[in-house]
């Protein structure tokens, strides 16, 4: 075998490896990492014995759990809370009168109907059943933390004697 042919083969091999790594990497990396308006830490809020529903107010009565509005934040943060250097930022928003534009990270497929109220209030499902333990998250979330497929939903519905009717979730 000639040298030229051998080197060609090596080059091809390297190209294939690079292509493979690139494809895998491209799938892993988020296209653009979304930025939340504030560097808020779930951990610090939960350390103060706050409940999830204090900020995500729709969770018990509506389909969407909802994000806190600036007014909700200012209920506590009107006066400085703690020594966190980023903490005063929320009052900058308030001074400008600019509403907080939280980035929604957990999105369901278009054909799925999901109600937080039905799960949390009627089904007594804990938040941690689907979401990660937020008391350990010190950063503002930048990626989705719910990765459910249908078999996970169905398994839980079976265990909890919830409806297994397709129309209960498919719309």
């Amino acid at each position: 075998m000639s040298y030229a042919r051998r080197s060609l083969r090596t080059v091809l091999l390297i190209a294939v490896v690079i292509l493979f790594v690139g494809m895998v990497g491209a799938r892993r990396a988020p296209a653009t990492s979304p930025r939340q308006p504030l560097p808020m830490s779930h951990k610090r809020h939960l350390d103060k014995q706050m409940k999830c529903r204090a900020c995500h107010q729709g969770v018990e009565g509506e389909a969407m759990a909802s994000f806190p509005t600036l007014a909700d934040c200012m209920d506590c943060h009107k006066t400085p809370q703690g020594q966190e250097p980023a903490e005063p930022e929320v009052r900058v928003f308030a001074a400008r009168g600019q509403e907080l534009s939280w980035v929604l990270l957990n999105r369901l497929p278009g054909h799925v109907y999901f109600s937080h109220a039905a799960h949390v209030t009627l089904g007594r499902v804990k938040c941690e059943a689907c979401h990660r333990d937020m008391s350990k998250v010190d950063q503002a979330p930048i990626e989705a933390d719910v990765h459910l497929d249908m078999s996970a939903c169905v398994a839980c519905h079976r265990d909890g004697n919830a409806s297994l009717d397709c129309l209960a979730c498919h719309k």
């Binding site: 109220a117 039905a118 209960a168």
Partner: peptide, 16 residues
């Protein structure tokens, strides 16, 4: 679907 989404909503609100 017999407007199943409406039935769904009415039932859920009644239960809540």
């Amino acid at each position: 679907t017999l407007c199943h989404h409406r039935i769904h909503a009415v039932l859920e609100h009644a239960r809540l």
